[in-house]
Design a binder for these strands. Sequence first.
DNA 1: CAAGATAAAATACAAATGTCGATTAGACGG
DNA 2: CCGTCTAATCGACATTTGTATTTTATCTTG
Lengths: 190, 190
Amino acid sequence: MEEKKEDNLDLRQRKTRRQLTQALVELMEERPFQELSVTDICRRAMVHRTTFYAHFNDKQELLHYLLTQLERECIAVCVPTDADSPRQFFLTAARNALAFFKERKALYRACLESGTDTETRLLEDAAAGELCLRLSQPPFRDALPGVDPRIAARFYVGAMLSLLRWWLASPDPVPEEVLLSHLDRFIPHS
Amino acid sequence: MEEKKEDNLDLRQRKTRRQLTQALVELMEERPFQELSVTDICRRAMVHRTTFYAHFNDKQELLHYLLTQLERECIAVCVPTDADSPRQFFLTAARNALAFFKERKALYRACLESGTDTETRLLEDAAAGELCLRLSQPPFRDALPGVDPRIAARFYVGAMLSLLRWWLASPDPVPEEVLLSHLDRFIPHS
DNA sequence: CAAGATAAAATACAAATGTCGATTAGACGG
DNA sequence: CCGTCTAATCGACATTTGTATTTTATCTTG
């Protein structure tokens, strides 16, 4: 709703946003997002309901806001700082992502079960953007001649995230190393 | 909600379900799903609101119902009947899927913009299941030694669908042949 | 076709949603 | 520190949601 820089917001606004997101996180650990009402969230956050509507149009928008922050954290954590090939870059990112989500399984599950899986969509766009950027810049620029970096980025990010979703949702998941070794195998060396 | 065989439902039930789904399709072409109320849908469908709740718990459940039907159609249309290798199988399926969604862009967009992109999630599960099944049965069973078919299926289906989403959402999409030639390149020959 | 089953409609209700305008409290700059 | 600006609160309101109960209409089966 608000499109401001987020940092130069009024102190009061940042405070209520923190209270609301915090309340949402707490409540999502108790019961599925679907069953939460705006009234519930406001009660928990000790924020007046009209104030909620001054910030977000509905509860999904609050969730979206929360997940955008999470996504930023994910990108920051997972993108490798050093890699000598696109292949290496991607494999390291995949390994990092696996670790990142393994520790956030609870929140992740809660979001998936909420029906609106905005998380992976947000993440997909952000990650594909990041990878695409790398593929079209100096270090890796000429490593893949004739390949559209946007297509390559979407392809591999989509593959990885789909695998990740499946792995996180599986009641009896394949061992992590098996997953990684398959990834290693599916990605060409050139 | 109802888990019956769908065919042997009471005539009256099938009728109201058709009316409701039809009304939803119509309304989604007028404005985003989010802005539709159960009351709206019932008014358009000429079905009493309490009857709606006898069939579905909320409007997302109706959407889910609609998309499940669409997904069945998609699988039926896209899965190749003949293919002599996993590689060939997948490439043909991808080509078919591209054509299928190109003709349903409007509905697809409407669903994506609705916030709940249950469509692609449903489709991902169904398609991955289908591919996995093929990869673990006679014709292709031994084509990929040492590969877990579930992992391979998720990987390639995820890649394809992510690309598809990007392609459909792009205001100025890459030519279809370019997309397909990249796919051809990204999938190993073995 | 008639009897019994059951889905749809009608009515009513408590709770939640989304939006007002008016008032109070707090943040920020000079 | 004080004046101004603006966010948060309050109270109220029309609408929507989800459910329960009763009545009416329609399908199915023998």
